[in-house]
């Protein structure tokens, strides 16, 4: 039996894709994702998502960097290896600022990049959507909307009918395994596949 990841609709431009995402959301679909060759701001909102954790995580990274930088200098210069030069105070904090600043930036930048990669679940060499026909153009000039099979409202016939109303260039199945080519005919048996084990 064919395992279906979802249905994919292909568009030529961002505008119809955003419109499609909006209408899919209004139709009650939640488990869906858009794939585009460049970032499109309105898509996030059209898909009904909000992600705001990253800036806070980066802020924490920066704070960690500042504490590390300042603490390292303060402890080493006052306790571990005090230099007594010309009676100057051991805890000469203004001199610690440049390194504190550099480490704040360094930690925050690494947190931003590692955080983004981790939250995105990357590196992920394999993903079912790569099985979709013509998906290599998602990094070139095509715009895709995928409605996943695990969406409670997903139905092979109904969802396909719904996607057709959005006037996409093409609609096809996204198979779960790379060797089973997703042809237009096998959706009838795929309808029996529930959300099952792919639910996270």
């Amino acid at each position: 039996m064919t395992k279906i990841y979802g249905l994919i609709a292909e568009f030529d431009q961002p505008k119809p894709l955003i419109e499609a995402a909006r209408r899919a959301k209004d139709a009650g679909y939640r488990r869906m994702e858009a794939y585009t060759p460049f970032p499109i701001e309105d898509l996030t909102e059209a898909l009904g998502r909000k992600e705001s954790r990253l800036p806070f995580i980066v802020f924490l990274g920066g704070v960690a960097g500042a504490i590390t930088g300042f603490g390292m200098q303060e402890i080493s210069m006052t306790r571990l290896y005090p230099y007594l030069i010309g009676g100057k105070p051991l805890s000469s904090w203004p001199a610690w600022i440049p390194i504190t600043f550099e480490l704040t930036v360094l930690f925050a930048a690494f947190t931003a990049v590692i955080g983004m990669i981790a939250l995105n679940g990357l590196p992920q060499p394999y993903h079912p959507v790569f099985n979709a026909a013509g998906f290599e153009r998602a990094s070139l000039d095509k715009f895709f909307l995928v409605i996943e099979a695990r969406d409670p409202k997903f139905d092979m016939v109904e969802t396909r009918r719904f996607l057709e109303t959005l006037n996409p260039g093409n609609i096809s199945d996204v198979s779960h395994s790379p060797d089973e080519s997703a042809s237009e005919d096998d959706f009838s048996e795929a309808t029996t596949i529930g959300v099952g084990k792919w639910e996270i």
Partner: peptide, 9 residues
Amino acid sequence: RGAAKHWHR
């Protein structure tokens, strides 16, 4: 893979 939520982050 150019997912919208990835682009957003």
